[in-house]
């Protein structure tokens, strides 16, 4: 697992209060990990803070699974 993936999963475990094993690449924040719309906004903000980037809203809306978050951040993180 890449360093970015490890950091992303740590944030998800912490913010959504889920077990590490549940945080698979395919897992959807809302359908599988119990996030509501506010949780999702908070996750995106935490990713922005952790990786010191700004994720535009229209991009943020396309990030709905763990895997999508990891690949977006691997591509954009500085």
């Amino acid at each position: 697992m890449s360093d970015i993936a490890t950091r992303v999963k740590k944030i998800i475990v912490d913010k959504l209060g889920v077990e590490e094993a549940e945080v698979t690449n395919e897992a959807s924040f809302t359908n599988d990990l119990g996030a509501d719309s506010l949780d999702t906004v908070e996750l995106i903000m935490e990713f922005e803070k952790e990786f010191n980037i700004s994720i535009p809203d229209e991009q943020a809306e396309t990030i709905t699974t763990v895997g999508q978050a990891v690949s977006y951040l691997e591509e954009h993180a500085k």
Partner: peptide
Amino acid sequence: PRFNPFFIP
């Protein structure tokens, strides 16, 4: 502005 979405609620 980087307010937490849970700030108001």
